[in-house]
Each structure stands twice: as C-alpha cells, then as structure tokens.
Design a protein around this nucleic acid. Structure first.
Lengths: 363, 363
DNA sequence: TATCAAATGGAAAAGGTTTTCCATTGATGT
DNA sequence: ACATCAATGGAAAACCTTTTCCATTTGATA
C-alpha cells in the first residue's frame, strides 16, 4: 500500500506539501512543486486511505439504506434513485436487506453505526419496537424515512390516502359502485392509509360500503389470486376490484379469467405501483403510479442537507401520485405503446386534497 | 461518541481488559470482570469504531459489487445472492452502478480501493480497457467475476454456448428447422457465446443456417419488437425465434400477435433469463433459466475464500442452466401454477457438453 | 546588505482501536 | 515467609491521514 509518505519521499517534498496539493489547501504552493507532486501521485497511483481520513474527519462519506429486499424491483428502483443522488455528492451506499424482520433492521442499524455511516435511509416497513428506538438513539448519523414513521424523523412520502381515493374516483367515473378492495396487512401504515382513503372515497361518492368487499391478503400474485377467487364466489360480486399492489392485480386477472368473466366489462381491476409489466400484460393494468426513483433521489438529497447541518424546509416532503388508466378498467382502451412518464414535480399532498375534498369517514 | 476508554473508565478496568473481553482474546480474564465489562458496554451502548479497527487490521469487512444497474431485476437478484452470503460472513456490501460505462467502472474501482474494500465482484459487462487493467493492478483486494472476463480473474459463470444449444435442441425436437435468433450486441461475450452455441446447434441438427435469420437488436422490449417485426416481413419467415433475453421475447410476442400469427403454432418463441414474468405472461414464455441468486451467492463465497488466502479449487465455477418449457413453444401447454425450481446443484458445464456433443462450427 | 514575503519543511496532535511487552497486584500453596 | 500463578494494568506502537504552528530556506526588493 502506497502512503502519502512514499509520495512525499519520491517527489522530494514533505507530506505537508503533498497534502496541501491534494486537498487544495488555501496555502500557497509553487506551481512547479504542485505539478511534481501530481506527477508522482499518478506514477505511484496513490490514493489516500479513506479509512484514515474518515477516522480523522469524522465523516465516512458513506450512507446506509435499509430496505426489505433489493431483489424486489419496487425497492431496487428506489435504491437506484438514492444511489444516483449519492454518487453526485460523492457518497457510497451500503445496502441492507431486512426481509421485514425487526431484529435484522436493528442489526443493520448497529452495523451502520460501527461503520460510521454519515446517514441512514429507511424504506418500506419500519418497525417501532423499543429495541429499534434505542438502537437509533445512539446513531449519531442523520436519518430519513421513505414512507410513514411514527417518530420525528424527516420523511419523503406519497399520500396513500389520496392514492386510494383517486382509484375509487376513477372507477366511480366509469359508473362503478360495487367496488371491492383487496388490501395488504393493515399493520403496515401504507396499507392502513390506503384503506382509509378507500373508505373516505366510498363515503364521498355515496357508494355502499360492504364489509365483505374489504379483505386482506398477502402482497403476492397468489395472494391476490386467492382473495379475488373467493370474492367472485359471493352472491353479490363486485364490479371493480382495487388491489394493494400490481402483483396482486396480476393474480386477480388470473382469477377473473378463470371465472370466465371479462375484464373490464364484468370486473374492472386497479393495481398499485405501476410496475413496467402493467403496460405489457394482457389486459394492460390500470395502476397507481408511484414515483419510486424520485422518492429515493429526494430522500438522499434531504439526507445530504441534514448531514450538512441544514434543517429540512419541511418535515415531510410529499410526492404526487397519479393513476395510469389502461385496459383493465377502460373498455376499448387502445394498446398504448408509450407510457407517459409522470413529471417530476413535487406538490403538497395536502394541497391536492384541498381541491378534492375528502370527507371524514363515518364510523 | 463513546469510546473504549470511556467503557474502561466506567467499568473501572483498563482498555486492555475491555479489548480482551470484546475480542475473546486468549488471555484469561476473570469471570466477574468480564461480566462487569459486558454490562458497561451494554449500558453505554458501546460499539467499537470499525474505521479505527479496519485501519489497524487492514481489513474493512466490506466488499464492492460493480454491476450495470441495480434497478434491473436480473442484477438485483444476483446482488441479493451476494448480500446474503456476505451477511452470513459479516461483510457489508457497497454497490456501484456502471451503466456499462467504462469510466464509471474505473471510477468505482478507485473508490473501492480508497475505501479499502476487501474484495470486488464484477458482474455483467466488464470492459477490458487499459485504464481498467491499470486501476485493477493496484487494487490490493481480491476480485471475482460473474460471467466471462478476458483476464485471469476467478469466475463464476454459466455456459452460454450450451444454453443456446439446448434452446435450439428443444425447438428441433418440436419439429422446427426454420429457426431465427435475435441476439444482443456481440461485443458482449455473453452474446457472442450464445451466437456460437446457436450456430453449433444448427450444424449439429442439420438445420439450414440462414444469414437473414440471425439479427441483432437492443436488449429491450422495443428492441425485440422491432427486430421480430422485420423478421416476419421476410419472404421466408421463421417458424421459431430465439430471443436474447425475456424482455425481447415479450416484444417478440407483441410483434407476432400484431401480425395475426399464432404462438406457438405459427411462430414459437424462446427467451433467456426466465424472469418471473415469463410464467404469468400470455402466452407463458419458454425460457432459459439462469440461476441468478446462486451465481451471486457462489461469487461471494468464492471471494471470501480468496480473501482468506485460499486458492480457488477451480479457476471457473460453472453453473447448470436449464430450459423451462411453456406455452410459447409447446402447443397445448397447460397453465402451470407452479414453476419447478431448479435444484441448486453445480456441475461442470463441460461435463454436460460431453454428453450432448456439440460439433465444432463449420466456417 | 538588510529586509520581507513566499514557499516549504518538521514535528506533533488527533482520530480509536488492537496488540505486545512488562510490571504489578493479590491470593494461594508450601 | 517465600515462591508461584492468575489476573490485570500501563505504556506504547502501529494503522494513515489532515491540520496546525513554527521554523527555515530561498529569492527578490529596497
């Protein structure tokens, strides 16, 4: 390992001078000397030891990301947004999969603390166990959450209540009133928010709220398949179903086809996430677009501000969600070759709500 | 930041003793003292500073992964395999996206060197530019490649020649002889190998090799769509098409449907990668399964051996590939609910070849 | 020649850990 | 009382960098 001392020796200068050149210190250094140092650095292919530097400067230029699973494309795209923003600012990214297990999250937090990560981004499923809170307490690094978190951490999020609301709105506009909702487990705040938005919308649009039309299932293809299968067996079957994510929506399509029903004429389907597959599926799936890449990017930018010591402008940064309408809800919908990409503008979810007016749910 | 010194003071012992307890040194330490230290560590929630430790021990327990793009599910699953193996051995993983740009790969190598990564895994598109070679030269850490690399780095790979061969074999067994191949750019070794295997198979099975049936396209949905569209316009149209990846295969399906042809009766389609979507698509897509997770896992395990100073048993570790047959090639293929997962056994690709006998290509 | 400014060097501290080498303490056994 | 041994402490080196504070050199200017 070539050190700064070797560079200094070879360039016949002191390590002080080498350091001055490499760190563009305000100290004057003769042009000829500077060039000589730079030449030697190149010859020796010297790179300063980041470990030593970090130890001294108390900042590692590394941040951690804790997500459920990188092989889930949903999170992979968030991560890509984080990484690109991190890259631009010179940060490296350490990724930890939690598989939604609390002890793995805690373990990760400790690991990041040991490695002196300058910051941490939590995404998708944060647990509020005491252990985690205490692990966080001594985490000197700054933290940002993507999604909802019952603490006072700055967050970047979408308005899930609103998202579910516009799903219903779209269906109502198409004439539906018998709308079912296959949700994920409501101990997830995301799912709880969506359920709230769904119910608010039913009330708002004067649709009947049938208990048996609100069910819970695993967020998987087979989870969606199974739930819809049993929904279709009921005496009163829904004319439209909202699925908590696209995987479930694909499963729903399968169940509906097997029941020899037409989509969207007999049963319309709405998914969540708008994964690329939605537009290539048959039928193409109407879905709520979630700006995953932008969420990641914004979270990282927020984190960088935090690390720099700047207070965030707003405690929560809201991202717009939109509904992408396709064959699974719109009869006669043409095959669209291009998905219109959402603009990357950021608005307050609350502002949107103002114009739409969601009434409080009736208990 | 609580240091070992503070722990020592609070526990009323020396830092030597604290260190002895924490690192299970061979030195004897009284049981009572040990417990006292452990208790204080817990109270203070002390964690040793990994930076200082790494600096001293000359190993950072961090490895780097250089891939084209984490948001590509193909690589995301490889990465997950790497991470799980890394986790088990106590390593953290730093992920760098190259977007297949040589300068970004080099940049990443330097970054990993600065951060003193103990090892690096390259996957998917390694460039052989002089810059990279020189950047690698002073990379003291060990390196492993997933795929082919024109250097002497240990590698974990699948036999792409064989993979293309069995694709043709499957089609020949179904009675096809007019087989086309829509490949990716052949400056990628993977694609070059597949082309070789395709041609070998044609010769082996006495199929005519038509120049116009071998084309190149972008590895995307639209790339596959465009190439197949023009293939179908030829006077002699193929009865089966092998696409270089599944994305392209989905595009192919679209083009074939638009030409009002039946799949697989008029045109059969084979993809590569066997992404989950293959089994949910309509028609479900016959595809070459590539054990992505296992490749990543094996690469990491190999890297760990290398870091430990052990020479790899074999220079290249071959993984088995298999063809998953579905509706896009097999007429009347039922809807299979469950995809039979490939067993995770590892055999030499060359051994497989022995039993199949691929003749040398005729030039 | 004396003076001044610019450029550079030397030495040291600080960051937190592990490990080594000896020294010391206290208790136990003879 | 003396020897022995286990347990522990103290001090220091090593890892490599950046930064600070002076001191020194060099070359130029008055």
């Amino acid at each position: 390992m070539v050190t700064i001392l070797e560079v200094a020796r070879k360039a016949k200068v002191s390590i002080t001078t080498v350091s001055r050149v490499l760190n563009n210190s305000s100290h004057k250094v003769n042009k000829r000397t500077r060039e000589q140092v730079l030449k030697t650095v190149k010859e020796l292919d010297y790179r300063p030891n980041a470990l030593a530097k970090s130890l001294l400067k108390k900042c590692s230029m590394t941040i951690g990301v804790i997500i459920p699973d990188i092989s889930n494309p949903y999170y992979a795209e968030i991560v890509r947004g984080i990484q690109d923003a991190a890259d631009r600012a010179g940060y490296s990214v350490l990724i930890q999969n939690s598989d939604l297990k609390a002890e793995r999250i805690i373990q990760s937090v400790y690991e990041l603390r040991e490695k002196h990560a300058d910051g941490v981004i939590f995404a998708g499923g944060v647990f509020h166990e005491n252990n985690l809170i205490s692990a966080m307490k001594n985490l000197s690094s700054r933290a940002v959450v993507i999604g909802r978190f019952e603490g006072d951490l700055p967050a970047v999020r979408i308005d899930n209540e609103y998202a579910a609301f516009i799903a219903v709105q779209h269906l109502v506009e198409l004439g539906h009133s018998k709308i079912a909702f296959v949700n994920g487990a409501t101990d997830s705040s995301t799912m709880a928010d969506r359920l709230q938005g769904f119910m608010n919308a039913l009330v708002h649009f004067n649709c009947p709220l049938r208990k048996e039309f609100v069910v819970m299932g695993a967020l998987t293809l087979s989870g969606g398949y199974a739930q819809v299968k049993s929904l279709l067996k009921k005496k009163q079957r829904p004319s439209a179903i909202i699925m908590a994510n696209d995987q479930m929506a694909f499963g729903a399509v399968k169940a509906i086809k097997e029941a020899k029903l037409l989509i969207p004429e007999d049963v319309a389907v709405v998914g969540f996430d708008n994964v690329p597959l939605c537009s290539y599926f048959e039928p193409s799936i109407t879905s709520i677009e979630i700006p995953r890449y932008n969420l990641g990017q914004a979270a990282m930018e927020l984190l960088i501000e935090l690390i720099a010591g700047n207070a965030p402008k707003e405690k929560i940064r809201w991202f717009r969600v939109d509904i992408i309408k396709r064959q699974s809800t719109v009869p006669g919908f043409g095959i669209r070759e291009k998905i219109s990409l959402l603009e990357n503008d950021i608005v307050s979810g609350r502002e949107i709500l103002k114009t739409v007016t969601i009434p409080k749910p009736v208990h």
